[in-house]
Design a protein around this nucleic acid. Structure first.
Lengths: 249, 249
DNA sequence: GGCGCGTAGTGTCGGGCGTACGCTAAAAAA
DNA sequence: TTTTTTAGCGTACGCCCGACACTACGCGCC
């Protein structure tokens, strides 16, 4: 501590948001387009995660929520800190130059705090984000992202899987009204497993916070399923004071 | 993005470490002493979490590990990012002045990345940390910490509880050789619950990664218990590919 | 040595939950 | 009407979990 000659103040902090949506078949992640001019190759474009440097007057949560609001119009989003990427060499050369040009600063280093979010994908939202120049890209086709954003996305997938297993996060990815089958498809797609529909149904329906709406699917060519909703209040009440060591078995 | 007139570079990042140890009865947290001179009151002392500003050449993990090494002599510690505290007003006035004086800088704001660690408390370690001017304070008597460190400790307790429930973290808090009772006492103290010893014992002993050592306690006035150890390799192997939605029940 | 005390460690038993799987119901396309 | 596909119910069985009785062992005390 108190070292002489070390610099502490030519570094800045950014936030990046990894926002996942589920389209019924696969996970998608929200990406924005980046353009920059390289000395030899002229203007080139690639994709990156939505993000922003933070000003010295705002906290990280406000910054992340601002970025999300600008891109998705969603303001009451389920947003959470995930991980800080702090390798001094994570942004260098051309990439660092782009940041310095873009923000009109002269930094030697940028740390980024990654935020994790999950939204209900629907036609309106996809249209809205498209108008803002952002795209929902299927996870399998994500490659060649700017900066170290590939690595960040990989880390975020692990984080998502972990949260799906420990929290009722699936309900934040599905529409408010959903069928048991949709819920099952989500788990199967994201966790890469197969689940017996009859046992899954029994398990889910035995939860007091899964409320049947008495309303049925329409326009499907097979037997229409009933819609259900998730009641967060009942879940919270139910979830208190349960001694359970999840890591055992 | 690209706002004019905003400053990005008169802020710095620090790491703070919340290190928990278990003494057999209660949780303890590692604190260091801070002294500063206040204009009216002269030299005053209080306690804070071990931490440090990070230089622009080091990443957060190195910084946290450096702080831990300096204070505990432990280098292969189980250290993990927890949360970033970024309220622009978290360090102000006197407190900000102290940081600027201590590091010889002129910052308007400091963000801190909190790291979470867990160690095996034993006499040697306690002596070592004491020689470095640090103390293991029982969690119930922690109050009046510097900066916003009270809030950080509260958040860390929640984090610890969550990890104890989802990971085999308890074995990192206990000595390498431990008895079933010690393990039970740990869960009871930290989670604030009562566990039936006979069922707990059955549950724990049925895990393949709990290895009996055939060695017994000595110097206890009751029937001596057998020692066990935790085998991380067997745990990892066993733990792969288990479909389990922990949040259900 | 005999006795009480406190912890270690084993056993039992009943109910509930998870898993495997058979079966019927309903809608739409052919 | 038949076929196809998913919704939704029921059953059977084993295993795990929680409640609780009981014995084993080391110590201090009389």
């Amino acid at each position: 501590m108190g070292e002489r000659g070390l610099k502490y103040d030519d570094q800045a902090i950014s936030v990046d948001c990894v926002v996942f949506g589920f389209d019924g078949h696969a996970l998608r992640v929200l990406l924005v387009r980046r353009e920059r001019t390289l000395p030899e190759r002229g203007v080139v474009a690639d994709m990156k995660l939505p993000g922003s440097l933070i000003a010295d007057t705002e906290d990280l949560e406000s910054a992340a929520s601002r970025v999300m609001g600008e891109l998705t119009g969603i303001t009451d989003i389920y947003l959470r800190q995930m991980e800080v990427f702090s390798d001094p060499a994570r942004v260098q050369g051309d990439e660092l130059q782009w940041i310095n040009d873009f923000y009109g600063v002269n930094l030697r280093r940028v740390l980024t705090v990654v935020f994790h979010a999950v939204v209900k994908l629907d036609a309106r939202l996809i249209e809205y984000t498209a108008a803002k120049g952002a795209q929902w890209v299927e996870l399998d086709s994500v490659r060649g992202l700017a900066l170290d954003h590939n690595r960040i996305v990989v880390s975020a997938i692990g984080f998502l899987i972990s949260r799906l297993r420990h929290e009722p996060l699936a309900f934040a990815l599905l529409p408010r009204k959903f069928t048991i089958r949709q819920l099952q498809d989500l788990y199967q797609a994201v966790l890469g497993i197969e689940i017996d529909n009859r046992n899954f149904r029994k398990k889910i329906l035995s939860q007091p916070y899964i409320i049947p709406l008495g309303e049925k699917q329409t326009g499907v060519w097979h037997k229409p399923a009933q819609y259900y909703r998730f009641d967060a209040r009942i879940f919270e009440r139910e979830h208190k004071s349960k001694f359970k060591l999840d890591f055992l078995r």
